[in-house]
């Protein structure tokens, strides 16, 4: 099997190995690192992680599918995750989601046909004092309003 994960990935794992008493403990860090460079976890990527750790590929899928942050489907260049939990909802997160859905012409959980945007509803992000909040890829954007949302999306190339 030709390797698809980079040397950087393997170097990073090598550095982490002595930090844990078992190799399987590297599974979550490996999935994160793989997703960072691939943007999603394709089946052959998960197989490669299984081979590196020395576990069955099914065990990788069993774990990856438990956690919502691991993308098991391709996502757009801009991954928008709007928190719609209590504090954000109290301050209008629902309207923001609706607005973005209309603007992009997709529903939550979908990706635009040009693969630029993926929209998701997120559970509490821990930014309730600055609600409504969302993540744009790895970054938090807080104190959202519909106008601010338009501005943010307008600035994305």
């Amino acid at each position: 099997m030709a390797k698809r994960l980079s040397q950087k990935f393997y170097d990073e794992m090598k550095k982490l190995e002595p930090r844990y008493p078992t190799k399987v403990a590297l599974l979550l860090p490996a999935l994160h690192a793989a997703q960072d460079e691939q943007s999603w976890l394709a089946p052959d990527i998960m197989d490669e992680i299984a081979e590196y750790i020395g576990i069955h590929p099914a065990q990788v899928r069993e774990v990856a599918s438990f956690y919502t942050m691991y993308n098991l489907k391709p996502v757009g260049k801009y991954h928008i995750k709007v928190c719609t939990n209590v504090a954000c909802c109290l301050l209008g997160a629902d309207e923001i989601v609706e607005h973005v859905e209309k603007k992009l012409g997709i529903k939550c959980g979908e990706t635009t046909p040009d693969k630029r945007f993926t929209l998701m509803e997120e559970e509490c992000l821990g930014a309730c004092g600055t609600a409504p909040a969302m993540m744009l890829n790895d970054d938090y954007l807080e104190n959202l309003t519909i106008e601010k949302m338009d501005k943010i999306m307008g600035s994305l190339a």
């Binding site: 078992t22 994160h32 919502t68």
Partner: peptide, 29 residues
């Protein structure tokens, strides 16, 4: 003393301490 940051991956239940430990060990939380 060695200290390592271990990132979760989006699961409320991993705030429960034994679920957290499973997650730390590379398992489902």
């Amino acid at each position: 003393f060695d200290l390592t940051v271990h990132r979760g991956a989006g699961a409320y239940i991993c705030g429960e301490e034994t679920a957290l430990l499973n997650s730390l060990e590379g398992k489902r939380g």
